[in-house]
């Protein structure tokens, strides 16, 4: 929390919802949200290094607790992918699903960190005036993920059906190959191609952003005195517990949609 400014509700919320923007070049686009980037990169690095460490020492015999936990996750993801994707899933889709699920879950889970304490730490330990710890409540992150999946989807579609097949599908699905319905087919497919990454990214972003805002609103109760602080703490706890469900569910949904989109691209009409 910034101490220089006067503490008003809108100031408090605005402060917590502004990104730590680093300008890299002229123009509105050429800047990065340092907080989203660093947190997501840090989480990804830590988690996947841990995974690598466990996977490297994985034994086919009796697994240790650490390996058993990773395997639990592995089997869970593998099961989900197996149910949706019909093809050689171990080459790409299943590991990609694991990446998505774990990374998104970790980034979502940053929501559990108490915002004001984290803000204090970021301010006083790392010297960052503003810092948002939840990368998935940054539309850039979710859109980057969704767009990557979107590109993968198109790439797989072309890889499976060939470029001609893909273009053929753009014009001839879902209504038929009659030249009269080509425009409708194309329009339909374009809408689908635009809506997929949008809904994919917005769903996650919206949930995480809303969760963060609710934490902020609950946090503001502390401004009303001791009873407000106590009640706010209780309510914050309840919301955090409920948020465990949201965090997991959103990560799961994001992963499942990723798998579904890619497997849809795999299946030709």
């Amino acid at each position: 929390m910034s101490t220089e400014h006067e503490l008003t509700p809108s100031g408090y919320i605005g402060h917590h919802l502004s990104f730590n923007v680093k300008q890299v070049a002229e123009g509105g686009f050429w800047s990065v949200n340092f907080d989203s980037l660093s947190v997501s990169f840090f989480l990804g690095f830590i988690i996947f290094a841990f995974f690598w460490w466990v996977a490297r020492g994985a034994t086919a015999g009796v697994p240790g607790k650490r390996q058993a936990f990773i395997e639990l996750l592995f089997e869970f993801i593998d099961d989900q992918v197996k149910g949706t994707f019909h093809g050689e899933r171990h080459k790409f889709v299943a590991p990609a699903a694991l990446t998505v699920f774990v990374w998104v879950f970790a980034m979502n889970a940053m929501d559990f960190l108490p915002i004001d304490i984290m803000a204090w730490i970021f301010h006083h330990v790392f010297g960052q005036e503003v810092f948002r710890a939840v990368p998935t409540s940054d539309i850039n992150t979710t859109f980057a993920l969704a767009l990557s999946v979107w590109l993968l989807m198109i790439a797989f579609s072309i890889k499976v059906k060939g470029l001609g097949g893909w273009i053929h599908e753009l014009f001839c699905a879902p209504f038929g190959a009659n030249p009269l319905v080509w425009p409708f087919n194309l329009l339909f497919n374009l809408v689908e191609y635009v809506s997929k990454p949008l809904s994919h990214s917005m769903r996650l972003f919206g949930n995480m952003y809303a969760g963060e805002v609710i934490f902020l609103l609950i946090g503001m109760w502390a401004a009303t005195g001791w009873s407000g602080t106590l009640f706010g703490a209780l309510l914050g706890g309840v919301w955090a517990i409920f948020h465990i469900l949201i965090v997991t569910l959103q990560a799961y949904i994001f992963m499942m949609l990723t798998v579904v989109y890619i497997s849809m691209a795999h299946e030709s009409h």
């Binding site: 996977a55 395997e71 089997e75 790409f92 590991p95 990446t99």
Partner: peptide, 17 residues
């Protein structure tokens, strides 16, 4: 991250399992 998982994390886990 995807590349890393595809390359280094998934195969050994799959092999073990």
């Amino acid at each position: 991250l995807i590349w890393f998982t595809v390359k280094f994390v998934w195969p050994p886990l799959l092999a073990a399992v």
